[in-house]
Amino acid sequence: MVGLSAGEKNFIRGGIEQDLRADGRQRQDFRPILIETGVIPQANGSARVRFGATDVIASVKAELGKPNPLQPGRGKVAIYVDCSPTAAPAFERGGGEELSTELSAALQKCLLGGKSGAGAGIDLSSLMVLEGKVCWDLYIDGLVVSSDGNLLDALAAAIKAALTNTGIPKVDVGVGASPDEQPEVNISDEEFLQFDTSAVPVIITLTKVGREYIVDATSDEESQMSSAVSVSVNSHGKVCGLIKRGGAGLDASVILDMVSAARHVSQKLIPLLDSEIDAAEAASLAGQGSDVDP
């Protein structure tokens, strides 16, 4: 990571204080957001999201498996993030390990809800095929292609888009199987169930620099943070997860204020993401994708 000189640091801090960041944004502005869906054809669902120069890909794969005996009526979801060396040579050979683990854990906390399953972004009981025997295992993989700050928010948006793009095939279970045997399953090629992603939350990270907080920080701005709070909010305005990151301590009132700021920002971000995702889906269905070959 390249360091910044004292003058540059001051410039960034001053900008944040004066509500005019280095690229002209205000504290609550996001960078231009680009979404493409269906980028990984061999996955059940996938999406690529760009926040400025931060570029991430999320893919969703569904495989049949056995449900957890403690929760026989639900499927399973696993989230895993990988930081590729193509993003930064520093990520080579385990250099990105720590960051990957942190991001994976944060995403799991925000998207999977409480232990009872309440408040999960994905309704796990919809993944059930045959109670106690067969369920869908969802593997959600995130890949960081290029990093310029705010990876968590970008990954969450990518996962939301990928889930919208995901089709789970319909499964017919063979009847008459004895309770001890593994039942016959017939996976349909034709019919798919789309996920209802209206409950999938977005994550908004508020980075505190000095007295103020900003959304969608670039790497340079993140290097100046005293601490950050990532809040996961769903379309009903409910908070689905909250993680405090970074060193400095925060007063409780500040954290609550940040939570309400995040909810306020989410009211603009969620409709924006939804419309971008819909546009991306329409574009990929039309077959041309969003790129042109010269």
Binding site: P41, Q42, A43, N44, G45, L64, T166, G167, P169, I187
Partner: peptide
């Protein structure tokens, strides 16, 4: 629609 080519079975 993504074509399913990824079921272990």
């Amino acid at each position: 629609m993504a074509s399913p080519a990824s079921y272990a079975l």
